[in-house]
Amino acid sequence: MESYAAVLNYAIPFFMALLLLEAGIAWWKGEKVIRSMDTLSSLSSGLTNVIKDVLGLTVVVVSYDWLAGEIGLFEIKSTWLVYTLAFIGLDFAGYWVHRLSHSVNYFWNRHIIHHSSEEFNLGCALRQSVSGFVAITVFFLLPIAILGVPGEVVAVVAPLHLFAQYWYHTRLIGKMGVLEHLIVTPSHHRVHHAINKEYLDKNLSQIFIVWDKIFGTFQEELDDVPPVYGVTRPVRTWNPIIINFVHLWQLIKDAWRTKDWKAKFTIWFKPTGWRPADVKEKYPLSGIEDPYAYEKYDP
């Protein structure tokens, strides 16, 4: 936690400088990529997330140090190769945690705030959750734990891996040639944040786009399908606390209202957006049918 907080001291001013640079370039090019209230909501979300992380308000069921100590088959020194293994391992784990967040009702609540912005800019990258109460990444770090990658290496690499995901939240950078085949680029991530049916739940990788290509979730940005950003059930608020828990509150209400006792327990683990049939009929929810006909929330 100390190393994470130390890195934040340098990362936050860097993030803000890039955000201002993006705004300046957009203004110079005559484009509008930032809306004041939307960006303020993003910054507020980032602030609540930082406070939560620094205070350590997350339950760690299994620590990586304990896991590596129990199942590690090798004892390796902290060389550049070990740091590379840790980075790749974190990226592999990040892909699966991200995929789980898009696929399971309960876990979507910890990720909805990041997608709730109807813009796509560097401010959007700062929309991070405070509702991820239980850390699950460690369960997907089994491969590097077995290899014996030390916990102190993971502690150093983890914030760097997280902060390396900031730069590609922008509309100002087009496709990047050969890099499109290797790493996650702004083009890839625009697809990920879009609600067009062609783009939903695609490009879940965090640094290396190869995971999407291996596991079948890759989608190229199409010239004839401009991305529309947000979530299919718009949150329509700037309040970061409401956005963080809007999906969880809906799940609680649906679980309470349904007469199907099995559904009261299974709703949490069903695919994202699933609702019991009786509740869906009695309490319908509206969503975006045509992304291009949707009017953005902008009071």
Rank of each mutant, 00 (worst) to 15 (best):
W108Y: 06
A125L: 08
L160R: 00
W27H: 05
S36L: 15
I195H: 00
V59R: 03
V62S: 09
F218W: 14
L55A: 03
L142Q: 01
S41F: 02
T266K: 12
R110A: 00
L251T: 03
I12W: 01
P186D: 06
V235Y: 01
N203K: 12
D298Y: 12
G30V: 01
I113A: 03
H111G: 00
T272M: 13
Y83A: 15
F92H: 03
L251R: 12
N105F: 12
A155D: 13
F208V: 09
P234H: 03
F265I: 12
Q128G: 13
F14A: 08
T185Y: 04
K202E: 03
V157M: 07
Y166W: 09
L18D: 05
A6E: 10
N244K: 02
F163V: 10
W28C: 05
V61F: 12
I144K: 11
G132H: 03
S36A: 14
E180T: 02
A255Q: 14
I34R: 05
E70Y: 04
V62H: 10
T137M: 14
G94V: 04
P271A: 04
A155I: 13
D278I: 01
W96D: 12
K253T: 14
V97F: 08
L55N: 01
V231Y: 00
I209M: 02
V82P: 04
D38V: 03
H189C: 06
W261L: 13
T272G: 10
S3V: 12
H111S: 06
K270G: 00
T58Q: 15
H188Q: 11
L19T: 01
T272E: 06
H181F: 14
Y10K: 14
H192N: 13
F269C: 03
A158H: 12
K202P: 01
A23T: 02
N121W: 14
L222G: 05
M37E: 14
E180D: 11
T185S: 02
P234V: 01
T185C: 06
R127A: 00
D91N: 14
R99N: 05
S42F: 07
V191G: 04
N49W: 04
A26F: 12
N196M: 09
W238T: 04
E281A: 09
V210A: 07
A263V: 07
A6Q: 11
V54L: 15
G30D: 08
A68T: 15
E289Y: 00
I88H: 08
W268D: 10
V157Q: 02
D298K: 15
I25V: 15
W28V: 06
A23R: 15
A68G: 14
K197F: 04
K264G: 06
G174P: 01
D254Y: 07
H193E: 02
I113T: 02
A135H: 06
D278E: 09
S116K: 09
W96N: 05
S41N: 05
D212E: 03
N49Y: 11
Y64F: 11
N49R: 04
F15N: 10
C124A: 13
S103G: 10
L81F: 03
S78T: 13
I195A: 08
N109L: 04
L141H: 02
V228P: 15
W238G: 03
V156Y: 00
